[in-house]
Design a protein around this nucleic acid. Structure first.
Length: 573
RNA sequence: CGGGGCGUAGCGCAGCCCGGUAGCGCGCCUGCUUUGGGAGCAGGAUGUCGGAGGUUCAAAUCCUCUCGCCCCGACCA
């Protein structure tokens, strides 16, 4: 491709709208342009990267035995009503009506559509197992689209669905996809980590997320460095604290704490550490009931864990108005003692405390030297808080550490959640009817491109890993002599014939402009052709990522580049 | 959904408080000179000042409404 004839509009200045590195660099390198909030066009350079990622994904999905199909973007409300997700998915679902006022939505994921297909076509266990996948545009009306294509309202996803006869088969299918995902992200040249995850809106039994490690990632993960354990904080279990010797119980005491509402204020006022304080969080659950959850002052509640324990899908913190109606204390002074009859849950870390501090259930009052059982009773002890660095891993080993990641893949063991609701069944060898056991598996293709940039860039621009780079090499004629032009053209033609994807910067620009644009676009090798080098019959080759420079005799340049590109492409699992 | 901010040339911005008919840098076009890390000189083109309504002799500027975009938050007592 000749740059003079291609549509790669680079920008010198940072666009004002871009916050994160990948967003900024994708705009500047001419890969994407915004159409509306969270909606982007992919320009030729951006599309080439997507295609590279898609190709790797396809190859590995096919290798794992999955078959590609293409489901519609638009799907009828009826299917979504069968699984209750028409209501449950909420505002994130893009809904629309046709001219007859029939309800439709733009697919955010395709469990319903694929399960519908399955139940129409599959009758017998002889047709199982089967895994189907597609690569397609998805729609989610995100509460706040941001970070360019990282969290858009329209994005490209590979989604796969497996159907099995039994648990064992389902586990094999799951493991097959898990392994394929590891290969895919390794082949893409990304540093990643699979972590245990929550199942969220998709539901199901268990799941793993694939996180590209990057400090700018939206997700927080915890891991034990000396074991395999790693999990999203939403999910991460915490081992109960070792039982230490209890302090002698001191007499309960009421103290005035004027205007001290927050943990920090109370601790500052009483001059104690937040780990001596217990927060009483009042939650409203699905059936309008109240539940109090006790969490240590230096910890954070994990609503997903609380929901899972209570077996409910909706959990909201009580509003200040509700609190003042329900209790005798304003917000900030709620405590478990003297609370109207509610269920009280206590986190493990709270249960291990003696002589702690709670809200006094009256304005400007707290209680100190509080002890469970003596002063009030609780209904359950459990793991209700968010993991943080230093907590104990549930699988033993050293304390947990935290890292940030970008979720680029997610695999779910679904079980029969969809097949039962939708009647997706098969007949076994005995003629018995069973619901198929399902799994579903997503990869954010467009997000993976952004994640790759977050992980591979420097102050000048992108540094693409070879397997997903839009081109393998870029030729920069940096002076304008006939000799330089002729040599550049020759190298271009030869590399092209060798099957190397090569970009030739034949624009009439000065060297500096070409160098800077090349660094910005980030193609792995730059072939710098100038009179200086030609005088010694050499050509300079620069490795974009390391900055390493090689002076290669002119006759050997094509061979040199071809060899190194092939080598880099082959560094696969 | 709540709060904050911004919409002025392709991009980045100034002008708005204090009304007088639009400017800077980069880019773009032409010419000459230059040419290994974002060239110099000379000349040139480009604006429904996000949209609608209002106030005024006069509105980018003041008022009202509206649309779009960005950021923060969405309740940890």
């Amino acid at each position: 491709m000749r740059l003079s004839q291609s549509f790669i509009p680079t920008m010198r200045q940072d666009p004002g709208e871009a916050e994160v590195v990948s967003h900024r660099l994708m705009l500047r390198a001419g890969m994407i342009r915004k159409v509306a909030a969270g909606i982007y066009s992919y320009l030729p350079l951006g599309l080439r990267v997507l295609r590279k990622i898609e190709t790797i994904v396809r190859e590995e999905m096919n290798r794992a035995g999955a078959q590609e199909l293409l489901l519609p973007i638009l799907s009828p409300a009826e299917l979504w009503k069968e699984t209750d997700r028409w209501d449950f998915y909420g505002k994130e679902l893009f809904r629309l009506q046709d001219r007859h006022e029939r309800d439709f939505c733009l697919g955010p994921t395709h469990e319903e559509v694929v399960t519908d297909l399955f139940r129409r076509e599959v009758r017998s266990y002889r047709q199982l197992p089967v895994t189907l996948y597609q690569i397609q545009t998805k729609f989610r009306d995100e509460i706040r689209p941001r970070f360019g294509i990282m969290r858009g309202r329209e994005f490209i996803m590979k989604d796969a669905y497996s159907f099995d006869q039994d648990e064992e088969g389902a586990k094999r299918s799951y493991q097959g996809m898990y392994n394929a995902y590891c290969r895919i992200f390794t082949r893409m040249g990304l540093q990643f980590r699979p972590v245990e995850a929550d199942t969220g809106l998709i539901g199901g039994i268990s799941s793993h997320e694939f996180m590209v490690l990057a400090n700018t990632g939206e997700e927080l993960i915890v891991f034990a460095p000396d074991t395999q354990y790693a999990a999203n904080v939403e999910r991460a279990e915490i081992a109960p604290p070792a039982i230490s010797e209890r302090e002698a119980k001191k007499p309960l005491e009421k103290v005035a704490t004027p205007n001290a509402k927050s943990v920090e204020e109370v601790c500052a006022f009483l001059d104690v550490s937040p780990c001596r304080l217990v927060k009483t969080l009042l939650y409203q659950t699905e059936n309008d009931a109240m539940t109090a959850v006790l969490i240590r002052g230096d910890h954070q509640a994990n609503e997903i864990k609380i929901q899972r324990y209570l077996g409910i899908h909706e959990l909201t913190l009580a509003t200040p108005e509700m609190i003042s109606r329900f209790t005798t204390a304003p917000i900030g002074f709620v405590g478990p003692i003297g609370l109207p009859k509610v269920r009280i849950l206590a986190d493990h870390a709270v249960a291990a405390l003696s002589n702690f501090i709670v809200g006094g259930n009256e304005p400007d009052m707290h209680l100190v030297h509080v002890n469970i059982d003596r002063d009030f009773t609780i209904d359950a002890i459990g793991d209700f808080r968010q993991a943080q660095a230093g907590d104990l891993s549930p699988r033993g080993g050293s304390p947990l550490q935290t890292a940030r990641g970008i979720e680029v893949g997610h695999v779910f063991m679904l079980g029969t959640k969809y097949s039962e609701k939708m009647g997706a069944t098969y007949l076994d060898a005995q003629g018995q009817t069973h619901p198929a056991i399902m799994g579903c598996y997503g990869i954010g293709v467009s997000r993976a491109a952004a994640a790759a940039i977050e992980q591979n860039h420097d102050e000048k621009g992108i540094c693409w890993p070879m397997p997903i780079a839009p081109f393998h090499a870029q030729i920069l004629p940096v002076t304008s002599s006939d000799e330089v032009r002729k040599t550049s053209d020759q190298i271009y033609t030869n590399l092209y014939q060798n099957g190397i994807e090569v970009l030739l910067d034949d624009r009439e620009e000065r060297g500096g402009v070409k160098f800077n644009d090349a660094d910005l676009i980030g193609i792995p090798f730059h072939v710098i052709v100038g009179d200086k080098g030609l005088a010694q019959n050499t050509i300079e080759i620069k490795d974009r990522k390391t900055g390493e420079k090689f002076h290669v005799p002119r006759e050997q340049v094509c061979e040199w580049i071809t060899d190194i590109v092939k080598k880099r492409l082959e560094s696969q699992p």
